[in-house]
Design a protein around this nucleic acid. Structure first.
Lengths: 174, 174
DNA sequence: ATTGAAACGACCAGGCG
DNA sequence: CGCCTGGTCGTTTCAAT
């Protein structure tokens, strides 16, 4: 008797990602302009089959959206920085989250360590960065900030579909 | 011999971005699946005209690529962290840059402040993070690391085309 | 999941402001 | 020189096997 048959199939859209799904995600994560015909022969399926899978992956939220990656400097945003914000009390206040409306603010995370909030910001100039920090200190509860300016970016990409073998099982034995 | 062939297109295609270009970039940065017909009526131009502009923006490198944004947790990567790496000497060694081959490493920046390198990593577990840190300490010249684990992510997006009015001129205007 | 067919969008050419 | 109109072709996407 095979008890592996009791796989919950009632939730059709939440079934586990197989190897083909991961390969599709890997390709689209690198280049979303690929046609379904190109994709199909890379993964060894027909175009409609791949189309069906992509639709499923989008519906399931695995593919959140597809966007054009823009060049900061070309848009005049030459300065990238990470700002660590130390607050009194818990950092996630509405006033702080309101900073998300600024297009210069790209990321906001609550974090462990000696800081409460980590922001990734990309601005046009040091003056603009100063303006942002000025707005930060205007927020009630902001105790201090520490800013790390990126001098050069050696790698910058979005979530990758792959998982490295070395890290899959933790620190390897030497 | 036609030496006009490899003239860098300074005058012709590297002309400044106008308002329509910025609007196009704004839309595509949010959703690159838009059809040219949709785009065209949003910016008030014909489809071929928009097509021409997008082609120019890609050639100029303003649009670097278009990718599918994937969901980390859905792929099993539930742990996001920023690792600050302190090194002896200058941080940008080949051994450190080799870590870019790990799909878990999403960003590597050289930075000012009390650290040399900032890495953004997304891993499947705390064990995987430990494995990554273990590899880091194996690299010659790595003195210490400080890790900030993201407890929750309130905002995470790519480079935005817009520039906020408040920051455009620095902190002087209130 | 595959095949075939229909609808749509991308993309090229020529002409106008 | 950049934009618009018409036309062609490839692609997406649906229906049936």
């Amino acid at each position: 008797m095979k008890n592996t048959d009791h796989i919950p199939q009632n939730a059709a859209s939440v079934r586990a990602l197989d190897a083909i799904d991961r390969k599709i995600l890997g390709e689209l994560g690198r280049d979303a302009t690929l046609s379904f015909s190109d994709l199909s022969q890379r993964v060894g399926l027909s175009a409609p089959a791949v189309h069906e899978r992509v639709k499923r992956l989008k519906a399931a939220g695995v593919i959140k959206r597809t966007v054009a990656i823009l060049d900061g400097p070309a848009l005049g945003k030459t300065l990238l920085a990470f700002v660590h914000v130390d607050t009194t009390g818990w950092g996630k206040t509405a006033a702080l989250m309101a900073l998300a409306k600024l297009p210069e603010v790209e990321e906001i995370h609550s974090a462990t360590g000696d800081t409460c909030l980590i922001m990734k910001v990309r601005v046009a100039s040091s003056e603009a960065l100063e303006g942002l920090l000025s707005q930060l200190y205007d927020v009630d509860g902001v105790r201090s900030t520490r800013t790390y300016v990126a001098l050069s970016t050696h790698l910058e990409r979005t979530v990758q579909a792959d998982i490295s073998d070395e890290l899959a099982l933790g620190p390897h034995i030497k």
